[in-house]
C-alpha cells in the first residue's frame, strides 16, 4: 500500500513541477516585456525626480542628487496649484460630465432604433474617435480660428466681430474639442451595457404604467450602474494624461489658462530644459491618477 502510494505520488509531483515550469515559461516573455518597457521607466522616473537632470548647462554633464529640492520648488510654485486646478476642470467637464453624459445620452437615444440608423450615427461618432489627436486638434483650431467656420457663420448670422475663441475662451474650447473626440468611447461602452438589459423588465414597467423618465432613472440607469462607474474611471484616467490635444490647440495658453499637469510637465522638462523637475511633476500626476482610481473604487465600487 505504502509503495503503491509513493509510486503514485512521484509522477504527480513531477507533473506539478512541470506545470510550474510551464507557467513560468509562459509568463516569462510577458514579465520580461513588463520589466523592460514598464517597470524600468517607472523606476527611472522615480530616481530622476530626485536629481537635477537637465537638457543643457552644467547639470546636463554632471548629474547630481538634489534630494527633495524638485518637490520643494514644485509645491512653492503657484503654477502647480494652477495646473492641478486646470486639470480638475478639464477632467471633470470634458470627461466625467461631457463624455460620460453625452455618451450615455446618445447610447440611450439610439436604443431600439433602426439598424441602419444606428450604424450611420455610430460611424460618424466613432470617426471622431479614431481620427488621430493631432488631426482633431487641427480641425478644431481651423474651426475656431478668426476666419474659421464658426466665426464665418456667427458673423454672417449675427453680424458681430469674429471671436478669437482659442484666446477668449481657451478652456471651453479644449473641453468641447475633447468631448467631441472622446464621446464615442463612452457611447460604445454604454451601448453594449444597455443592449444587455433584458427587454422584459422594461416591458413590465411599461405595463405597470411607468413613464419614460421613470424607466430610465429607476430601471435602466441602476441596471448599468457598474458600467457607468467603470466608464467614469477609465475616461478620467485617459483624460488626465491628455497632452497632444491641448498643446496643439492652445500650447497651454494664453498665459497658463489651459496649462494642465501634462502641459506643465512638458514645459518644465522640454521648454525650461529641467528634465529632473519635469519627472518630479510626472510623479505627482501619477499619484493623482492613483488617488482618483482608488476613490472611484471606494465610492463607486468599481470592480477591478
Amino acid at each position: 500500500m505504502n509503495s503503491s502510494e509513493t509510486i503514485g505520488r512521484i509522477p504527480n509531483r513531477s507533473k506539478k513541477r512541470n506545470q510550474i515550469k510551464r507557467t513560468f515559461g509562459l509568463l516569462a516573455p510577458g514579465v520580461l516585456l513588463l520589466l523592460v518597457f514598464f517597470i524600468t521607466p517607472m523606476v527611472l522616473t522615480v530616481i530622476f525626480s530626485f536629481t537635477n537632470l537637465s537638457l543643457t548647462g552644467d547639470a546636463a554633464a554632471n548629474l547630481k542628487f538634489v534630494g527633495f529640492q524638485n518637490f520643494v520648488t514644485m509645491f512653492k510654485d503657484p503654477e502647480l496649484a494652477n495646473s492641478i486646478w486646470k486639470t480638475i476642470i478639464f477632467v471633470v467637464f470634458s470627461a466625467v460630465i461631457g463624455q460620460c453624459f453625452f455618451g450615455f445620452l446618445i447610447a440611450l437615444l439610439m436604443r431600439g432604433k433602426n439598424k441602419t440608423f444606428r450604424r450611420v450615427v455610430g460611424l460618424i461618432i466613432i470617426a471622431a474617435w479614431v481620427t488621430p489627436e493631432v488631426v482633431v486638434s487641427f480641425c478644431w483650431v481651423a474651426f475656431l480660428s478668426d476666419g474659421g467656420t464658426l466665426n464665418k457663420i456667427l458673423v454672417s448670422l449675427l453680424n458681430i466681430k469674429p471671436i478669437a475663441w482659442l484666446y477668449s475662451f481657451p478652456m471651453i474650447s479644449v473641453v468641447i474639442a475633447n468631448i467631441w473626440r472622446g464621446t464615442a468611447f463612452s457611447m460604445m461602452v454604454f451601448q453594449t451595457a444597455l443592449d444587455d438589459i433584458p427587454a422584459e423588465i422594461e416591458e413590465a414597467a411599461v405595463i405597470d404604467g411607468a413613464s419614460r423618465w421613470q424607466i430610465t432613472t429607476r430601471i435602466t440607469i441602476p441596471m448599468v450602474r457598474g458600467t457607468i462607474a467603470t466608464n467614469i474611471m477609465l475616461v478620467t484616467l485617459q483624460t488626465l494624461g491628455v497632452f497632444t490635444l491641448i498643446y496643439t490647440m492652445t500650447g497651454g495658453g494664453p498665459g497658463n489658462a489651459t496649462s494642465t499637469l501634462p502641459v506643465f510637465m512638458y514645459k518644465q522638462a522640454f521648454v525650461s530644459y529641467q528634465l529632473g523637475y519635469g519627472t518630479a511633476i510626472s510623479l505627482v500626476l501619477l499619484v493623482i491618477g492613483a488617488v482618483a482610481s482608488l476613490l472611484y473604487m471606494k465610492v463607486l465600487k468599481v470592480k477591478v
Partner: peptide, 11 residues
C-alpha cells in the same frame, strides 16, 4: 545665447 550652456553640458 545657448552655446555656452550646451558647451558646459558637454555636447
Amino acid at each position: 545665447f545657448i552655446l555656452p550652456s550646451d558647451a558646459k553640458a558637454g555636447y
